[in-house]
């Protein structure tokens, strides 16, 4: 499918280098073109085009009924999206910053997530928004709340790291019959670019990808930390440590197969995530490895994560709080010695 790309506010044309942000916008645009059941709902997404301009130009093209600016009411946004989905629509709900998603926590975890199990009611909605730190957003504009939702059966949780995946996974999320939470790391929004296919494509939900092959240890990561992990792996290479790097892409359902296959090859595992340590996905991965490949482990599962604190504001504090390449290198070198 090719699309008339120059419609108001487009930052790029198809087939050229596009940012992560533009990839999101293209996914929504193309899904709305493809299917009139797809509608957007959120705060300042219409007239203003979204706080990060991810929906710029979409109101102009698709009109009031399909790009719904709402009051500041996260529970109403999610609740209404759920109700709309009961009549066969596929709403994409935006949280202006993902931090505010917890204002709709009850609607998501009790209403949306349980409907299919309890009364056979699918709720094909996507809830998406900018997440993550590293941009000095402070304690309320830097959240990584993915694990609240990974702990909720009935949801799917996606956290991509590249424009290609962001576009393909968002399209897959829109077409999925289940409620999907889609986290967009805002540090990546304008920092990485990629050439995207001109034709329609999706990326399967629930499949991790091996970003770099290696034999000495496996680094598992996702979102912005994916790039940090890749940088670290390149440096480790020069030291003679060949790290395999896995991008989880989807956190729920987790691709256990890819994780276990890599571990059986490298026998060592380091998990890197920007989320805080306690209750982060690393703990879940540790359990999966113990259950599925205990005999293959040649060292402890190690993790590099944010501190167990709120996200602090001052650059010096945030830098200390976040994982970075040095911390990954340190952990990887320690692990390699086992």
């Amino acid at each position: 499918m090719t699309t008339a790309w120059k419609a108001n506010g487009s930052q790029a044309e198809l087939g050229t280098q596009v940012t992560f942000l533009e990839a999101i916008r293209q996914a929504m645009y193309e899904e709305m073109e493809r299917d009139p059941a797809v509608v957007l709902i959120g705060e300042d997404i219409g007239v203003y085009g979204g706080a990060f301009k991810t929906s710029e130009g979409l109101l102009e093209r698709f009109g009031w009924e399909r790009v719904i600016d709402t009051p500041i009411s996260e529970s109403a946004i999610v609740g209404a999206a759920c109700g709309m989905s009961y009549l066969g629509l596929r709403p994409i709900a935006e949280m202006q910053f993902i931090d505010f998603i917890v204002c709709a926590f009850n609607q998501i975890t009790n209403f949306v997530a349980k409907g299919h199990y309890l009364w056979n009611a699918p709720a094909p909605i996507v809830i998406r928004g900018p997440s993550g730190g590293g941009v000095h957003g402070g304690p309320f504009h830097s959240a990584n709340p993915e694990m609240y939702f990974v702990h909720t059966p009935g949801l799917k949780v996606i956290y991509p790291s590249t424009p290609y995946d962001a576009k393909g996974l968002l399209k897959a999320a829109v077409r999925d019959n289940n409620p999907v939470l889609f986290f967009e790391h805002k540090f990546l929004y304008r920092r990485i670019k990629e050439e995207l296919p001109t034709e329609d494509y999706t990326v399967p939900i629930g499949k991790a990808v091996v970003r770099r092959e290696g034999k000495h240890l496996t680094i598992i990561s996702y979102a912005a930390m994916m790039h940090t992990s890749l940088e670290a792996a390149a440096e480790l290479e020069r030291e003679g440590i060949h790290a395999e790097v896995i991008d989880l892409r989807t956190l729920l359902p987790l691709d256990e197969e890819t994780i276990l296959a890599s571990l059986r090859k490298t026998n060592k595992c380091l998990v890197v995530h920007e989320d805080t340590k306690t209750g982060g996905i690393a703990g879940e991965i540790a359990a999966i490895l113990c259950e599925g490949a205990f005999g293959d482990l040649d060292g402890p599962l190690m993790r590099v994560t944010a501190l167990d604190t709120p996200v602090p504001y001052a650059p010096s504090l945030e830098e200390y709080f976040l994982p970075n390449k040095e911390k990954v290198l340190h952990a990887a070198r320690t692990l390699a010695k086992y």
Binding site: V39, E65, R66, I68, S73, S75, A76, I77, V78, G79, A80, A81, C82, G83, M84, S85, Y86, L87, G88, L89, P91, N106, Q107, N110, F111, K114, G115, L118, W119, A121
Partner: peptide, 22 residues
């Protein structure tokens, strides 16, 4: 279907109403 948490149906049924109109 309702859930136990009181009030949640109000935005949900608002969504139903909006979708029906759409």
């Amino acid at each position: 279907s309702p859930i136990s948490m009181l009030g949640d149906l109000i935005p949900v049924m608002t969504g139903v109403a909006i979708a029906g109109r759409y």
